[in-house]
Simulated assay, not measured.
Amino acid sequence: MKTFFQMLLLALFLGVPALVTHAADDLSAVRARMEERLPTIDDLKAKGAVGENNQGYLEVRDAAAGGSNARNIVSAENRDRGTVYSAIAEKNKTTSEQVGRARARRIAANSAAGVWLQRENGEWYKK
Results as ranks from 00 to 15, higher is better:
1 M>K: 05
4 F>N: 10
5 F>Q: 07
6 Q>Y: 08
6 Q>I: 12
7 M>N: 14
8 L>C: 06
10 L>F: 10
11 A>V: 04
12 L>A: 06
12 L>H: 03
13 F>S: 11
13 F>L: 13
14 L>R: 10
14 L>D: 14
16 V>E: 02
19 L>N: 09
19 L>V: 12
19 L>E: 08
20 V>S: 09
21 T>H: 07
21 T>V: 14
21 T>D: 10
22 H>S: 13
22 H>K: 12
23 A>Y: 00
23 A>Q: 07
24 A>G: 07
24 A>M: 12
24 A>R: 12
25 D>L: 14
25 D>R: 15
26 D>C: 05
26 D>A: 09
26 D>N: 07
30 V>Q: 00
30 V>A: 01
30 V>L: 00
30 V>F: 01
31 R>H: 04
31 R>E: 12
32 A>M: 06
32 A>D: 12
34 M>I: 11
36 E>N: 13
36 E>S: 11
38 L>P: 01
39 P>M: 05
42 D>N: 15
42 D>S: 14
42 D>P: 03
42 D>T: 11
42 D>F: 06
43 D>N: 13
43 D>E: 15
44 L>W: 00
44 L>I: 03
45 K>Q: 10
46 A>G: 11
47 K>E: 04
48 G>M: 04
49 A>F: 00
49 A>Y: 00
50 V>A: 01
51 G>D: 02
51 G>K: 01
52 E>Q: 13
52 E>M: 10
52 E>T: 06
52 E>V: 04
52 E>A: 04
52 E>P: 01
54 N>Y: 05
55 Q>D: 09
57 Y>I: 06
59 E>D: 12
59 E>K: 12
60 V>S: 01
61 R>A: 03
61 R>G: 01
62 D>G: 07
64 A>L: 11
64 A>N: 02
65 A>H: 00
66 G>K: 00
68 S>Q: 13
68 S>H: 11
69 N>I: 08
70 A>C: 09
71 R>T: 11
73 I>K: 06
73 I>C: 04
74 V>R: 00
74 V>W: 05
74 V>H: 01
74 V>K: 04
75 S>Y: 05
75 S>D: 09
77 E>W: 13
83 T>M: 09
85 Y>V: 03
85 Y>H: 01
88 I>H: 01
88 I>M: 07
88 I>Y: 02
88 I>N: 05
89 A>V: 09
90 E>P: 00
90 E>R: 12
91 K>M: 15
91 K>A: 15
91 K>S: 15
93 K>Y: 13
93 K>I: 14
95 T>L: 07
95 T>W: 07
97 E>H: 08
97 E>S: 12
98 Q>W: 07
98 Q>N: 14
99 V>C: 03
99 V>P: 00
100 G>K: 04
100 G>A: 06
101 R>M: 14
102 A>V: 11
104 A>D: 03
107 I>S: 08
108 A>C: 09
108 A>K: 09
108 A>D: 10
110 N>C: 09
111 S>H: 10
114 G>W: 02
114 G>Y: 03
117 L>W: 01
118 Q>I: 04
119 R>A: 13
121 N>Q: 07
122 G>A: 02
125 Y>D: 00
125 Y>S: 04
126 K>Q: 14
126 K>Y: 03
127 K>H: 11
